[in-house]
């Protein structure tokens, strides 16, 4: 086979390459650069090799933040995905009710992150907040600034409120794309409501659910603004997640070297976990792929 060779085609890729270089590759290389040097002042810098990586790997606080982060992200997925699907299933399919439901569900997505934090800060106050005073009225002790577990649960609840709509909207779009004939065939086959969900709806929305899981996983793994505004990472370190820990290191303590090393590790962790999740979901529900 003689393929025509035309190197000019590279010119077509060039604009994208330049954009990506400035937006991603160059900043990333700067981080790589920082991670292997000790920057004492702009003029004085020392090459330290993998020292920062080694010290970051031994950092107990970092391990704690990572563990907190993983538990938080998994909790987010465990709550938001089923809840989002349930919400999508209960939303009306057409007419003005569908539009009204869509707008109502989408509202939390339109609110800026830091405002979400502020809203929940007020919402959860026991003196003037609706939720806080309601819990207090039930006779329960509640303080998201004082109790570590409660702070953690409040952050989770806030994230569920903020991001479940995204899962619901994606699942809703997936559900609406299922042709009517499937439901009609299911009625003729005498399928129960549960069987319709298990064998028609769930397989048909698998694609959008995968996107929802990846988006929610990545976003929750990088969560910063909302807990920063709501709890400031406290009490103690109870709600200090990875990105906040990183920011403390880089901006608060100006330890650019360790922070850069840690960023790279962070980046690799997210890539690895997304890769595992993606492959696992690709296989899920498709047994016997080998026979094709």
């Amino acid at each position: 086979m003689n393929k025509p060779v035309n190197q000019k085609a590279w010119l077509l890729v060039l604009p994208v390459l330049i954009c990506v270089a400035f937006s991603s590759i160059l900043p990333l290389m700067t981080v790589v650069n920082y991670s292997v040097q000790d920057i004492i002042s702009p003029e004085r810098r020392v090459f330290v090799g993998t020292e920062w990586f080694a010290s970051v790997m031994r950092d107990r606080e970092l391990h704690a933040a990572l563990a907190r982060q993983i538990v938080f992200s998994l909790s987010v997925l465990a709550v938001e995905i089923p809840l989002g699907i349930a919400l999508a299933l209960s939303m009306p399919a057409s007419g003005w009710r569908a539009s009204a439901a869509l707008v109502a569900v989408a509202l939390p997505l339109l609110i800026p992150w830091n405002v979400v934090g502020t809203i929940w800060q007020i919402f959860c106050r026991t003196d003037i907040g609706l939720l806080g005073s309601a819990i207090k009225a039930l006779g329960l002790e509640y303080s998201y600034t004082g109790d570590a577990t409660q702070a953690w649960l409040t952050v989770l609840l806030m994230d569920v409120w903020h991001w479940t709509p995204l899962v619901a909207l994606l699942a809703y779009a997936g559900l609406r794309a299922i042709p009517d004939a499937y439901y009609q065939a299911a009625r003729i086959d005498g399928a129960s409501r549960l069987a319709v969900f298990r064998y028609i709806q769930l397989p048909k929305i698998r694609g959008v659910l995968m996107i929802a899981v990846l988006l929610r996983f990545m976003d929750s793994f990088m969560i910063y603004t909302e807990p920063f505004v709501l709890t400031g990472g406290g009490p103690g370190n109870a709600t200090t997640f990875l990105s906040q820990y990183l920011t403390q290191k880089a901006v608060g303590q100006f330890d650019l070297g360790p922070a850069a090393a840690f960023s790279l590790i962070y980046f690799l962790i997210i890539m690895l976990l997304c890769f595992i999740l993606y492959n696992w979901m690709q296989r899920l529900g498709t047994p016997g792929r080998a026979d094709k």
Partner: peptide, 22 residues
């Protein structure tokens, strides 16, 4: 009566199959 009670088979314009099943 429901379609199941009538016991009628119907084939649609586009093939309807349950994707995840053999």
């Amino acid at each position: 009566a429901s379609p199941q009670q009538r016991n009628i088979a119907q084939v649609f314009q586009f093939p309807v199959i349950y994707d995840t099943m053999t």
